[in-house]
Amino acid sequence: MSVLVIAEHNNKSLKSSTLNTVRAALEIDTEVHILVCGFNNDEVVKQTSVIEGIIKVIQINDHSIEHQLAEHLSQVLVQISKNYTHILAPSTTFGKNFMPRAAAILDVSQISDISAVVSADTFVRPIYAGNAIATVQSSDLIKFITVRPTSFEAVESSGGNAMIEKITFNLEEIKTKFVNREEAQSERPELGNARIVISGGRGLESADNFKLLNEIADKLNAAVGASRAAVDAGYIGNECQVGQTGKMVAPELYIAVGISGAIQHLAGMKESKIIVAINKDEDAPIFAIADYGLKADLFVALPEFSKELDLLNNIAK
């Protein structure tokens, strides 16, 4: 029995979601391989080969799959999956895109977004925006699984020594053409695995006011997130959305500012270790799950928070 993990990367570096997915794979079986599909991806293969616990890295280096479109990746998976009992990918927009496509071609049901491994055929997954937890058992011969990264601790990104196998495929032409990508550039930590996240909601009132959050994020080395309302209003990009239809985060500290706390937002952050809520409405549902609540006008509280952090840092020095 062996498990194949599909690496998430951008041809230059490996995404941390892969390390969480490897942890889930190792809970299923010790024989774990990783597939790196892409173009000019030697650096990613190198990074992947030293991940803790990996036996083999399979590299496909092909110009036609540079952008890892679902129609291509599914062709690769359909051919390669016969050697495996389980195929795992992170439950990110990357994995969500091609995994069901490959599963359907193989006439296999996918198990989405697992949060725990019970046994080789039984898994736990949140449903209804995380308000219910289902334990499900799959009867398919090959199990296609997407993994919720925040539910599995990342394995060490070094210390391993996997063998590398290069393979080639004849891929059928596809009817989708890549045009371009607009990737948000940020010096801050990645939202999905930052130690601290500070998120803003509709209460921020404008895109410009997000600079109040950015200032604090920089002092705490935090990622900046947002509620769907803030993204819909155009205050901040979609890549920052936390929630049922956005990203799942589980940092050590989550600070929700001007966010009322709709079920759909809570779905994306309620696994955080410590939750802070700053809101002027004392009836906001976010307070019901916050470890520390502060009823305050954020336009007063945020500058003060920033100043207090400076004081704290000065004392530390």
Binding site: A132, I133, V136, S139, D291, G293
Partner: peptide, 18 residues
Amino acid sequence: RVKFLKVEEAPVRKGGTM
């Protein structure tokens, strides 16, 4: 192909202090 063995209530997170 996938059998629901059980569905449980998610653990409820309790609010702390103001």
